[in-house]
């Protein structure tokens, strides 16, 4: 995908994309090993899509990158800084678009977007209004500004969550299942938005998703996580003909009514 580094229109200063490095990351919850010795890196300005079956540890990995979880072993570096330290969030602008949006239900859409710039005093109220309306405009949400999150459809909630992340002038954008529970057209729209934001604002992007179309359509590289292990790492072109049978089964499952999978699972 073409990459044209441009200045983030929300920022008064250059905010270059940052790289992410995951080094021998392991995570245990009690006796359950969720992530097993995972290592890979994401280059500045890259779109990296992390795929895998439900329960494979994708969202947990995302939470480690943004510092919401502490590793049991190994470390995550964002722009060379340890992601588990609070200090890192002060130096690197990271934005996570949560699966369910995680919009603040007690605030209007406008106030959801304005919260970050207000709390960090990045501009006066007129400047904040300009930033917020710009973000809403980019995502075609101008008419939703005064609505409450409870009045929005699933697709609109995802777009508001992306707009809220955009106002933070991120150097690293993380998306947790951005196309889940959406119809195919809205899923394609969200994929286009993710790719456009990366292209126009040169932001490093990590997407956790089940969506094969999204991964093959917009990713620079795709990692596949299974049972807490990274079993495949490659370009979308390489994934079109996967060598690992587990990856092939996951990406291109065939519906077999004569020999259904759930009966194999029972035995």
């Amino acid at each position: 995908m073409a990459c044209s580094p441009t200045r983030n229109p929300f920022s008064h200063t250059e905010s270059p994309a940052v790289g992410v490095s995951i080094e021998h990351l392991s995570k245990k919850f009690g006796s359950m090993q969720v992530l097993k010795d995972i290592s890979f890196s994401v280059d500045p300005g890259e779109i990296f899509v992390l795929m895998g079956p439900s329960g494979s540890g994708k969202s947990v990995l995302l939470k480690h990158i943004v510092g919401l979880e502490q590793p049991t072993a190994g470390r995550v570096l964002v722009d060379g800084r340890d992601a588990s330290l609070e200090d890192t969030r002060e130096h690197v602008h990271m934005a996570l678009v949560f699966q369910a949006g995680a919009l603040f239900n007690s605030l209007s859409v406008y106030d959801n977007l304005a919260l970050y710039p207000r709390e960090h005093q990045v501009a006066d109220e007129a400047g904040i209004r300009e930033k917020v309306m710009r973000a809403l405009q980019i995502l075609s949400l101008e008419n939703a500004a005064q609505k409450s999150p409870s009045e929005l459809s699933g697709g609109m909630k995802k777009r508001v969550a992306i707009a809220r992340a955009l106002v933070m002038e991120p150097q690293l954008m993380l998306y947790d299942e951005p196309t889940s529970e959406l119809d195919p057209v809205m899923s394609a729209t969200i994929s286009e938005i993710i790719a456009t934001l990366k292209d126009e604002y040169h932001v490093t992007t990590i997407v956790v998703s089940h969506d094969r179309e999204l991964a093959l359509g917009i990713a620079d590289r795709v990692g596949i996580l299974m049972g807490g292990e990274l079993v495949s790492l490659g370009t979308p072109a390489e994934l079109k003909t996967p060598k690992d049978p587990r990856v092939a089964e996951f990406l291109y499952p065939k519906i077999d009514l004569k020999n259904p999978r759930f009966k194999k699972l029972e035995t």
């Binding site: 919401l68 949560f98 709390e119």
Partner: peptide, 21 residues
């Protein structure tokens, strides 16, 4: 409910301490 529906996590990722607001 803010914690369960990840609003508190969203605040943390926005570098806005929940203890503060």
């Amino acid at each position: 409910s803010m914690k369960v529906y990840q609003e508190v996590d969203a605040l943390v990722t926005m570098n806005i301490p929940p203890a503060k607001i």
